[in-house]
Amino acid sequence: MALKAALLRHVRVPVQTLNPGLSLTLTGAKWGLPSLRWMSSHDDHLSKNEVTERVLSVVKSFPKVDPSTVTPEVHFQKDLGLDSLDNVEIVMALEEEFKLEIPDKEADKIDSTNLAIEYIYNHPMAG
């Protein structure tokens, strides 16, 4: 995880050197300073904290879940007492929240908040 984050940071370095004014907007507010590719989703990537926060808020707002029990390491079926169809519904809610389209076989494997955060954080089009 730490290695992946370090790699991602390393990969972005040439982009920042090409466009010095851009480095501020990369991790900052989405609609803040105008960047080189205005209204483009290619240059900004979600931070891990933001992904975690939004995933947890989606899981907490699921009707059958007690919000106080939701943590970043919680397993949907073992810890929250949901069944497999609820799991499908949560993954679909996450797709809508992050404007993603996850292939069926991969979405089927996402069964905990930890996996969901990891998958969405490493997805290039998550927004």
């Binding site: 497999s84 499908v88 993954v91 679909m92 069926d104 089927d108």
Partner: peptide
């Protein structure tokens, strides 16, 4: 069978 049901439910819900 369980996997087929999950994927079918997912597609049907979408």
């Amino acid at each position: 069978q369980k996997e087929r049901v999950r994927i079918l439910y997912r597609r049907a819900l979408k």
